[in-house]
């Protein structure tokens, strides 16, 4: 088992493209979920879709979520709060650029890193 990665973008295309890049880097061993778009499919994010993506990527080792802009983060936080406590404490949102962060996080997860390792590796990309 490894940490799972969830990609949340405002754009379904960006989410899908970032997920493709992750798959190319680390294959299918890292559980991966992604979503983009508002409930109507336009640019935006959806709590419902985020919950489904978390479910798709679920790992008992934890889930690292990568988000693009503000609403993706707020909606991801909301989604996490709606989950049962035992799941909530195993999910983190990384402060990192969504595409590069997802690839770095997945690589760390693939190498066996813990949830904290995965988050730290992704966040090394962000200016301190």
């Amino acid at each position: 088992m490894t940490v799972g990665i969830v990609i949340v973008s405002h754009s379904p295309d960006v989410a899908k493209g970032a997920a493709d890049m992750v798959r190319q880097m680390v294959g299918n061993e890292v559980p991966l979920g992604f979503c983009g778009g508002n409930p109507d499919g336009g640019l935006g994010t959806s709590v419902e879709k985020i919950l489904a993506a978390i479910d798709a990527a679920w790992s008992e080792d934890g889930i690292a979520i990568l988000v693009d802009l503000g609403g993706a983060e707020t909606n991801s936080e909301m989604a996490i709060e709606m989950l049962p406590e035992e799941r909530r404490q195993k999910i983190v949102i990384c402060n990192a650029p969504v595409v590069e962060g997802a690839v770095m996080a997945a690589t760390e997860a693939w190498g066996g890193g813990s949830l904290a390792d995965v988050k730290r590796t992704a966040e090394e990309l962000s200016p301190q």
Binding site: G42, S46, V47, N75, E77
Partner: peptide, 14 residues
């Protein structure tokens, strides 16, 4: 509102 708004205002007004 949380489920359907699709932007940061969903969780906020929710």
């Amino acid at each position: 509102l949380v489920m359907k708004v699709g932007g940061a205002s969903g969780p906020l007004y929710g």
